[in-house]
Simulated scan of single mutants.
Amino acid sequence: MTQVTPGTWNLDASHTEVGFTVRHAGISKVRGTFQAVSGTLTVADDFTASSADITVDMESIDTKDANRDGHLRGEDFFDVEKHPTMTFRSTEVRDVDGEEFVLVGDLTVRGTTRQIELQAELGGQTTDPFGTTRAGFAATGEISRKEFGLTWNAALEAGGVLVGDKVKIEIDAEFVQA
Rank of each mutant, 00 (worst) to 15 (best):
V43T: 04
V43L: 05
A44F: 10
A44S: 15
A44Y: 03
D45P: 06
D45N: 14
D45H: 06
D45Q: 15
D45W: 10
D46I: 12
D46Y: 10
F47E: 04
F47D: 09
F47G: 02
F47M: 04
F47L: 04
T48C: 07
T48E: 14
T48D: 09
A49E: 00
A49F: 00
S50G: 02
S50I: 02
S51G: 14
A52Y: 01
A52T: 06
D53W: 00
D53G: 01
D53Q: 14
D53M: 05
I54W: 09
I54M: 07
I54R: 03
V56N: 10
V56S: 02
V56Y: 03
V56M: 05
D57G: 10
M58L: 15
M58F: 09
M58P: 12
M58G: 09
E59P: 00
E59I: 07
E59C: 04
S60Q: 09
D62H: 09
D62S: 15
D62V: 07
D62C: 01
D62W: 09
D62T: 07
T63R: 00
T63M: 01
T63N: 03
T63D: 07
K64D: 15
K64I: 03
K64S: 15
D65A: 06
A66V: 13
A66G: 03
R68V: 02
R68I: 00
R68F: 11
R68N: 15
D69M: 05
D69E: 06
D69P: 06
G70M: 05
G70E: 12
G70T: 11
G70D: 15
H71T: 06
H71G: 08
H71A: 15
H71C: 04
L72S: 02
L72Y: 00
L72V: 11
R73Q: 13
R73V: 07
G74E: 05
G74M: 12
G74R: 09
E75Q: 14
E75A: 15
E75W: 03
D76L: 07
D76H: 11
D76V: 11
F77I: 10
D79I: 14
D79G: 08
D79T: 13
D79P: 13
D79H: 14
D79Q: 09
V80W: 12
V80A: 09
E81Y: 06
K82D: 15
K82Q: 13
K82H: 15
H83R: 06
H83A: 11
P84K: 09
P84D: 13
T85K: 08
T85N: 07
M86P: 07
T87F: 02
T87E: 01
T87H: 00
T87L: 01
T87V: 04
F88T: 04
F88Y: 12
R89P: 00
R89V: 00
R89K: 03
R89L: 03
S90T: 05
S90R: 02
T91E: 14
E92H: 08
E92N: 14
